[in-house]
Write a protein that binds this DNA or RNA. Structure first.
Lengths: 234, 234
DNA sequence: CTGTATCCGGATCGATACTG
DNA sequence: CAGTATCGATCCGGATACAG
């Protein structure tokens, strides 16, 4: 049997929204704002292309996603329909609930720095930086070689895996757990800096203003945790 | 691989909330208010006991459900923890979204009258009825024999599959689709009554006040549908 | 009544290879 | 680059039987 065989609205929503990976695909579309196939896939790197393709077709079928042929020839863009747009607040609420009650603090397993960078890319506050091009070099201690160095080029928000060659304005050095914990709000930035778990090197002004322009997770970092389940700030 | 391997709050919520049947179990606990194993199962009649048992243990493990030994000997009660309580609004929002954009009108497949009655049981407005015991007999045309007759005893809200023997105050006769459609808000009660798709027989006052005391779905029947997807009131 | 253990079939997913 | 086809292993869930 495929669905649930119930006329209840929640049951029918579950048939569409709860298949494997589907919630994360919707997150990419509704909360991160990705539109291209490969951009979506960067947000769900462990998902195979074939399954992503299938899920996008299913979401199209369900009236949540609309596929548009791109004008410049190859490939498509995946846009949310009005129904899909209204899923944004729904998934935000799920995330907030999870942040309050469920989410494991990141100190246990090594987080994926590629994923972290892919999201950080969108949360750096460009308008708190000097105008003009800016290159931020992130170095992760103890990560796999391919996941140790990232260059973020602003204001384009281009994320590179090799030095783009424009020169580096500031280097941020950390281990994967610490920077992820800070970005998710599990660890106070001031603590990480004073412990030298995050080290900054570059123009004096950029270093000093780091807390201003390095944005945390816009939705979850400020979520209020219940006193029975405080944030771990170890 | 079991989970999603991401530190994202939504991904971790999905690991817990989106396994098969789990959303419906949460609906029973958070929105319908069932506490006993068999009551929960009446809300998800196609789910096997063994799987329900397993899911309840998983939800306990996740900190959403708390199992309490009943004082009167046999069995347990399943209560929501504070985390579980806060899922109520989340699932209500999912249901409202689904009602607006997704839910198929019930006219296609034969709805389960047992399920309908199990929910109607809780939405009849007892305080709009005369005080004292009241027996409502529901008769469904064209349903399977075991799903054709129900007696609802108020104010206890006991649902019986055979005549409890107190006498019947009012009989409601309909086909499964019509009564379900009315209860879900897909079909106006006045229309169904004037078409004689719902027939009432009993005390004159009870018949006349039927629209007052027969409550519709408290959350979904009044949801506003977008003009691009109006309610079918056929 | 209130669940729980086990076992087997089949859907589903992940890997791989491949095309416009 | 942007997907799609195929195929086999895995895991999940449904049925059945059974225990407290």
């Amino acid at each position: 049997m495929k669905g649930y065989g119930q006329f209840c609205a929640i049951a029918q929503a579950a048939e569409v929204l709860t298949e494997r990976w589907t919630p994360l695909v919707i997150r990419e579309l509704a909360l991160t704002g990705s539109r291209r196939f490969n951009d979506i896939q960067r947000g769900v790197p462990l998902m195979s292309s074939s399954l992503l393709s299938k899920r996008l077709r299913q979401l199209e079928q369900a009236g949540i996603v609309e596929r548009r042929q791109r004008s410049d020839g190859k490939g498509s863009e995946y846009h949310l329909t009005p129904a899909g747009e209204e899923l944004g607040p729904v998934f935000a609420q799920i995330g907030i609930w999870s942040e309050r009650w469920l989410r494991r603090p990141i100190f246990e397993e090594m987080p994926d720095t590629g994923l972290l960078m892919w999201w950080v890319r969108t949360t750096v506050k460009t308008d708190a930086l000097p105008t003009g091009r800016m290159v931020i070099h992130f170095r992760f201690r103890g990560a796999a070689a391919k996941l140790s160095n990232f260059w973020l080029v602003l204001p384009e928000a281009d994320l590179c895996l090799s030095d783009p060659g424009f020169g580096v304005d500031i280097t941020v050095r950390s281990d994967p757990k610490t920077l992820t914990a800070v970005w998710m709000g599990d660890l106070a930035l001031a603590v990480a800096l004073s412990n030298r778990d995050i080290e900054l090197e570059g123009h004096r002004d950029l270093v000093r203003s780091f807390p201003k322009w390095f944005g945390l997770h816009p939705l979850f970092a400020s979520v209020d945790h219940p006193s029975s389940r405080p944030r771990v700030t170890a």
